[in-house]
């Protein structure tokens, strides 16, 4: 492995971090340490990359991640009522994880579903044209 190499080297860092994120719902310190060693990078360098991207998390997260879009096209279509409904449904605030580890709740920037506003992502599924009434049913599918 070399530091600047294209294959298997540094160029794979983001891919490897993404893989770790999807496998264990976060990037642990052990993972960062291992990646730093195998790619011959400093821990800080790997941590710096992991902390840059908003879909990567260095803190443990729930089994399912809810991301409600808070950008203007969704806000115009009452995204706030969706945020409130999710909050009531799962009993936590944005930035938190339910005690049973089922959901993490986040607000996110434009997800490119403005034609179906208000919209949210649960894991990588996009749910659009939401109404407060639909929330419970949508979330039911995620255990």
């Amino acid at each position: 492995m070399n530091k600047t190499g294209r294959n298997g080297g540094r160029g794979e860092l983001l891919v490897l971090l993404e893989a770790a994120q999807s496998k264990s719902a976060h990037i642990s310190r052990d993972t960062i340490t291992e990646l730093a060693e195998s790619l011959d990078l400093s821990i800080g360098e790997v941590y710096g990359v992991a902390s840059f991207y908003s879909f990567l998390s260095t803190k443990p997260q729930g089994r399912n991640i809810i991301r409600i879009c808070k950008s203007l096209p969704c806000l115009l279509k009452h995204a706030q009522t969706i945020i409130d409904s999710v909050r009531q449904e799962i009993g936590i605030l944005p930035g938190e994880t339910t005690p049973d580890g089922r959901f993490s709740f986040e607000l996110t920037n434009c997800i490119g579903a403005c034609d179906k506003a208000p919209a949210m992502m649960v894991n990588s599924d996009v749910h659009g044209d939401l109404t407060p009434k639909k929330i419970a049913k949508v979330l039911q599918a995620y255990k």
Binding site: S42, G44, Y47, G48, F52
Partner: peptide, 20 residues
């Protein structure tokens, strides 16, 4: 020595050591 790195983003970016 590679002790320092940049972490986070935007106004919150910061020079860090290891896991901050």
């Amino acid at each position: 020595h590679d002790v320092f790195a940049i972490a986070y983003r935007g106004f919150d970016s910061k020079i860090v050591v290891d896991f901050d």
